[in-house]
Write a protein that binds this DNA or RNA. Structure first.
Lengths: 216, 216
DNA sequence: TACCTAATGTACGTACTAGTGAGTTACGTG
DNA sequence: CACGTAACTCACTAGTACGTACATTAGGTA
């Protein structure tokens, strides 16, 4: 982030235009779903025109895939920045749960894109080479914590890293993704500050209790 | 289900036609989302015509709302049939978790409709009078189990019925709703028989461990 | 400075899609 | 069996949405 002293401010800047398209497209797709999103609407909300969307991305579908790829890349970037190796197993897993919670809380558009992609049975991300090669750093991290926890005797569980990731993700994802129907049917806004704080602690308690093996 | 001896087999039957429209529409909406669903496609998959959809439901949106109302009504019906009052608290909650798991497993279209409705921020179910009055029998049931569990000393938790419902639902919902992206990214099919059985047990272990309060 | 090309704007075409107008037929009722 | 109405068919329209042909310009380079 070196501050350019008097930015060039080119009128024509491919990178800026592409980035702006992706950002607006992400909002549009997240708000309306793939079929409900309007290419014209994306164009109208920018300083560029619809022509540029097709110039850079070729089609609505390829634009959508680019949006999803970018969103996933950001998640992986965040996962890679997690540092919990210096913590004891119980604290490490609790911290990981809290960070996952915070990440879901902060990236509503990403959550919606994942939900949309699942409605289409992941047909788009399966087409994406970029996503297949992203790797899953968080799984390695969880595996390390689980091994340490079993060695120290804190954890008594047969669950593997994928299970634990699923356990944490399901809680965090559901709270954000289903907030609207849940709120409408049960009269509770899971994203309101008081519930947010309580549920953030709850996901840690839940996963630790489970890993300690007292539910069997 | 009294078997009619030589069914009347009317050529014109409003109820049958309406029911068929709802069934096909449920599939179409679940598969493609609200915007992606095609009224013409729904009509093409039936013995009736598109005109009848408008004759009975008025608009694509009102048809969609009718589909969602019917799906939710079936869930509530199932919830009302749960009988666990004769069980000890730990077994009661474990049974409830397993039944919830089975229900999510068996109603994929419903799961997708809920996901779709959340993408649209529940704007449709908020319009529905029928859904506001459905009630939530499962919450009363959980409240009873929680009280019994606290009285018996099995449960040491501050969580209320809505929290516990959310805990169980999030796990069961995520496994089905996110199976496609999860499978594509982590290479594990959470709906494959071996994982299905394992995860079914896991949701019970998880909620019991949490309620016993050993995670704090 | 002349030139070339990436980047951009304008206007339009084609196909689709929700919704409808108007006419037709089954079927319960008196 | 006549009749009225609910149930149904067919053909059509108006508007929309993705995508593109063509014209234009900025800005780097020789």
């Amino acid at each position: 982030m070196t501050p350019q002293p008097a930015a060039p401010e080119r009128q024509r800047d491919a990178e800026r235009t592409k980035a702006e398209i992706l950002e607006v497209a992400q909002q549009e797709f997240a708000r309306h779903g793939y079929a409900g999103a309007r290419v014209d609407e994306i164009a109208a909300r920018m300083r560029t025109t619809k022509r540029m969307i097709y110039y850079y991305f070729g089609s609505k579908e390829r634009l959508y895939i680019a949006v999803v790829e970018k969103a996933y890349a950001e998640v992986r970037e965040m996962e890679r920045s997690i540092e919990v190796e210096h913590l004891a197993p119980v604290e490490a897993i609790r911290t990981l749960a809290a960070l996952t919670f915070d990440h879901h809380d902060a990236h509503r558009d990403f959550i919606k894109l994942v939900a949309i992609e699942n409605i289409h049975e992941a047909e788009h991300i399966r087409k994406s080479q970029a996503l297949a090669n992203l790797g899953t750093p968080v799984l390695d991290l969880i595996a390390l914590i689980l091994d340490a926890g079993r060695a120290s005797g804190d954890f008594v569980t047969e669950a593997d890293a994928i299970d634990v990731h699923m356990l944490i993700s399901s809680f965090c994802f559901f709270r954000v993704a289903n907030q609207h129907t849940f709120g409408a049917l049960f009269g509770r806004d899971m994203t309101a500050p008081e519930h947010r704080a309580r549920l953030r602690a709850m996901v840690g308690d839940m996963v630790v209790a489970y890993l300690r093996g007292t539910g069997a």
